[in-house]
Design a protein around this nucleic acid. Structure first.
Ligand SMILES: [Zn+2]
Length: 273
DNA sequence: CAATCGACCTGCTGGC
DNA sequence: TGCCAGCAGGTCGATT
C-alpha cells in the first residue's frame, strides 16, 4: 500500500544500517512469483547505497549489481535483531550492518510486489518505464501541461496514478493533491486551466513533502504500512478528503466517494470544481 | 494506438 | 459473537 512517502521512509530507515553485508539468504517458494529476474546470488554481497525513483526502491551492491524492488499493495522491507518469523516473509537476509548483526526481510502478504536481482542494465530497463519523480527538480508546471496536452480527453485522477507519466503518486496522494488544488478528480485534462496546473504542482509538492515528514501513512492499527523498524506512519491527521466523512479544508462539506478506473476516489464537491 | 477492466492475493472492516 | 461480502495504499495483461 506504499506510495512515494512510504517507500522513501523505508529507504531512509535502511540507510541507518548501511553498509549491509549479506552473509546468508533464506527464501520461501512464494518468492518465485515476486522475483522476476535473478542474475546472481546475493550471498557475500554488500548493500552500499539506496536509490528511489517514484515508488521503486533500488539497492546498489557494487560492481554494477543491483536489486530493484516494487512493493505492490502490501510489500515492505523490515530490519530486525531477532530472526523475522512473520507469516509472509519471502526473503530473509542475514546481514552484518553498521549497527551490528541484523536480519533484512522482504515481507509481502499479497505478493503483488516485484523484485529484480540483476546488473545495471536491468535497473536501467526497469527505471525507463518510470516517469518524472514528483520530488525532483524536473517536476514542474511544464511537465504537467505537456501531459495534459497529450491526453486532453482523459480524466485527471486516473492519469495521476500512471507511473510512466508521473512517478510516486498513488491513490491517497492523488485524492489529496486534487483536494488541495481544488480540482475534481473527474475533470478532463483539456479543461484544466493554467492557474489550476500551477496550483496542482504546488499541491503535489506540499502533500508529498508533508507525508514524507510524517513518515508516510498508516491506516490500520494491526496491519498495513510500517517503516523498517515496525513504526506506523503519522500522516493520517494530514488527510483532508481521503477516507474522510467531512472535508477538512472547508470543515463542513460532506466528502463524496466515487469509483474511477476501479479505484475508490474521494473529493469535496464544495471545495473542488 | 489509447483506454478500460478484470485478475492477481491475503486479510481487515462493517453490516447483518 | 460469528460469518461473510466487500474492499484495500498497485500494477499487468487481455480486450475493447
Ligand atoms: Zn471542502
Amino acid at each position: 500500500m506504499p506510495e512515494l512517502p512510504e517507500v522513501e521512509t523505508v529507504r531512509k530507515g535502511l540507510l541507518d544500517f548501511l553498509p549491509l553485508k549479506i552473509n546468508k539468504v533464506e527464501r520461501t517458494p512464494e518468492l518465485a512469483s515476486i522475483l522476476k529476474t535473478e542474475e546472481f546470488s546475493l550471498k557475500g554481497l554488500t548493500i552500499s547505497s539506496l536509490e528511489r525513483k517514484g515508488k521503486v526502491l533500488i539497492f546498489h551492491l557494487g560492481n554494477g549489481k543491483t536489486v530493484v524492488s516494487r512493493f505492490g499493495m502490501a510489500g515492505s522491507w523490515e530490519v530486525s535483531e531477532e530472526k523475522n518469523k512473520k507469516k509472509h516473509n519471502h526473503l530473509q537476509l542475514h546481514c552484518t550492518s553498521s549497527q551490528g548483526a541484523v536480519f533484512l526481510s522482504y515481507v509481502d502478504a499479497r505478493r503483488f510486489g516485484k523484485m529484480h536481482i540483476g546488473y545495471q542494465e536491468v535497473t536501467k530497463r526497469e527505471l525507463a518505464k518510470v516517469g518524472v519523480d514528483v520530488t525532483t527538480e524536473e517536476f514542474n508546471e511544464k511537465v504537467l501541461r505537456d501531459i495534459f496536452k497529450k491526453y486532453p480527453d482523459r480524466q485527471i485522477k486516473p492519469l495521476l496514478l500512471e507511473q510512466e507519466k508521473l512517478a510516486g503518486i498513488g491513490n491517497y496522494l492523488a485524492c489529496e493533491i486534487l483536494a488541495h488544488c481544488k480540482v475534481r478528480p473527474t475533470r478532463r485534462c483539456k479543461t484544466i486551466t493554467k492557474e489550476e496546473t500551477k496550483k496542482m504542482v504546488w499541491a503535489t509538492k506540499k502533500v508529498v513533502s508533508e507525508s514524507i515528514e510524517k513518515n508516510g501513512l498508516t491506516f490500520t492499527k494491526t496491519t498495513g504500512y510500517r517503516d523498517v523498524l515496525g513504526n506506523a506512519g503519522e500522516f493520517f491527521d494530514g488527510l483532508v478528503v481521503f477516507r474522510q466523512k467531512l472535508c477538512k479544508m472547508c470543515g463542513d462539506g460532506p466528502v463524496k466517494k466515487i469509483v474511477l478506473a476501479t479505484r475508490g476516489t474521494f473529493y469535496c464537491p464544495q471545495c473542488q470544481k
